[in-house]
């Protein structure tokens, strides 16, 4: 199989074993929106935020890098992240999506759809600790 670039974390490779907050083990390609939501509900520190894709641009530094701008949470804070084009995000109700799904499937064998403006991704923030 193809070598995974060092910049891509190993847990996105198809077949990787993921432990949910309740201890259940699932393969990365089998994860559902509910798995993330329920895990965050159990977590004492993390909460799920909705992050809407507002813009996707190429990077000046590398053709394999994209800059994705999100609008995060109810305050619609603007956050930009620079990622490899094959880096997968989890879209609510849809599953893994990336800027270049063909590359994601090729490199990670992870089934993936095209990340588009307007998609709502799962992201994490800290719960308010009192």
């Amino acid at each position: 199989s193809a070598a995974v670039p060092p910049s891509l974390p190993p847990y996105f490779i198809k077949g990787s074993i993921i432990q949910l907050a309740d201890g259940e083990l699932k393969r990365v390609e089998d994860l559902k929106t509910e798995d993330f939501i329920q895990s965050a509900e159990i977590s004492s520190e993390l909460k799920i935020d909705s992050s809407t894709v507002e813009r996707i641009e190429g990077s000046h530094t590398s053709p394999n890098v994209a800059v994705v701008q999100f609008s995060v949470g109810e305050h619609r804070a603007q956050v930009s992240v620079e990622v490899m084009v094959e880096y997968p995000f989890f879209v609510f109700g849809q599953g893994w999506s990336s800027c270049c799904p063909d590359r994601t499937t090729q490199l990670l064998e992870l089934p993936c759809t095209k990340l588009s403006v307007g998609d709502v991704c799962i992201s994490l923030t800290l719960k308010n600790l009192r």
């Binding site: 804070a77 992240v81 989890f90």
Partner: peptide, 19 residues
């Protein structure tokens, strides 16, 4: 076989809170 925690798969996007 390595086991990864669920939260490592999710980007941590922390907006600056003004309140």
């Amino acid at each position: 076989v390595p086991v990864f925690p669920w939260h490592s798969l999710v980007p941590f996007l922390a907006p600056t809170q003004s309140d």
